Amino acid sequence: MRTELVSEPGDRARPNEDFASLALPASGLGGALVVLDGVTPPEGATGCLHSVPWFTARLGGALTELTVSCRDLPLSEILSRAILRTAEAHQSSCDLSHPRTPQATVVVARWSAEAVEYLILSDSALLLESPDGTVTPHLDDRLALLPRSALATDALVDATVRNKEGGFFTAAADPTVADRAVTGTVPRVDVRALTALTDGATRWVEKFREGDWTDCFTYVRKEGPQALLDRVRALERADADRTFLGRSKTHDDATVVYVEL
């Protein structure tokens, strides 16, 4: 088995709000990965005393432990329990009903000798490669499908589409959001390798159009996750007129996890 994990902040002066983990049980028969992209709030109140990195560390740690130790539970139930556990850690001190309470996108994959299970919530990505080289992207594209007018201001997003029906969902403080995640199961024999990426890394495909998802997967497999992040950073620096980046931040936290089964 080959595993690689690379994560770096968009700004070296700020903490990385992403979280990534790999777990390989001692049985040798399976494993799991967890990738979170913490949502950077706008300036102003969030109702919470804690930082986004505090939240992603708590939620990511709970997801990792539960995914490995509760292999009989579906991933949606595991996400629900992890959100509840994290909420309980700060509900007495924070207003968890605030629309900008700390939150994150989620990718979880778990494999055994029989199957590969996956869960995606919001705009991080999971790519599965079959033995014949076919790459299948598993995405939660609800945010991407919203009209630009719905995302015009932070206040409008919070009032109308963030964690609301007809909008998009992230893991915050409500455990029922786990039922909104994109989930599925693929026979283990149909998966040769997998890659999880936060949207700071998916810029290679989604903003800079360097290739499609198959090209992205091939790049990671051949050159490695760090090479992909290095290329994204170079493209960001070169986009001085913001032809590709538009209103997006110049550099975003970026994470890539690659696993060959």
Score class of each variant (00 low, 15 high):
residue 38 G to N: 13
residue 129 E to L: 06
residue 217 F to N: 07
residue 60 G to A: 11
residue 116 V to R: 05
residue 103 Q to H: 10
residue 258 Y to N: 04
residue 48 C to A: 15
residue 209 R to F: 04
residue 77 E to I: 07
residue 94 C to Q: 09
residue 165 E to S: 15
residue 217 F to W: 00
residue 96 L to F: 08
residue 114 E to L: 14
residue 12 R to N: 11
residue 242 R to S: 11
residue 35 V to D: 05
residue 61 G to S: 14
residue 153 T to I: 03
residue 135 V to Q: 10
residue 124 S to H: 11
residue 53 P to Y: 06
residue 1 M to V: 07
residue 42 P to T: 04
residue 14 R to T: 14
residue 166 G to D: 12
residue 55 F to D: 02
residue 153 T to H: 11
residue 153 T to W: 11
residue 12 R to V: 13
residue 162 R to S: 08
residue 206 E to D: 15
residue 157 V to M: 02
residue 42 P to D: 14
residue 16 N to C: 13
residue 179 D to F: 01
residue 182 V to C: 07
residue 83 I to L: 10
residue 256 V to R: 09
residue 206 E to A: 10
residue 137 P to G: 11
residue 111 W to I: 01
residue 25 P to C: 06
residue 95 D to C: 13
residue 186 V to M: 09
residue 209 R to L: 13
residue 170 T to D: 00
residue 149 S to G: 07
residue 214 T to C: 03
residue 257 V to L: 08
residue 21 S to G: 11
residue 58 R to T: 14
residue 19 F to A: 02
residue 183 T to F: 13
residue 81 R to W: 08
residue 223 E to W: 05
residue 144 A to C: 12
residue 154 D to C: 00
residue 122 S to E: 07
residue 206 E to H: 12
residue 220 V to M: 05
residue 258 Y to M: 00
residue 221 R to Q: 04
residue 87 A to M: 10
residue 189 V to E: 10
residue 12 R to Y: 06
residue 182 V to Y: 03
residue 253 D to W: 08
residue 128 L to Y: 01
residue 143 L to G: 03
residue 182 V to A: 05
residue 48 C to W: 00
residue 259 V to W: 09
residue 181 A to Y: 04
residue 237 R to P: 02
residue 177 V to M: 02
residue 104 A to V: 00
residue 90 H to N: 12
residue 234 A to Y: 10
residue 148 R to E: 15
residue 242 R to T: 07
residue 224 G to W: 04
residue 141 D to N: 13
residue 131 P to H: 03
residue 122 S to C: 15
residue 144 A to H: 10
residue 224 G to E: 02
residue 112 S to V: 09
residue 83 I to F: 07
residue 184 G to Q: 06
residue 89 A to I: 13
residue 204 W to P: 06
residue 78 I to C: 06
residue 243 T to I: 15
residue 216 C to W: 03
residue 196 A to N: 07
residue 148 R to K: 15
residue 125 A to Y: 01
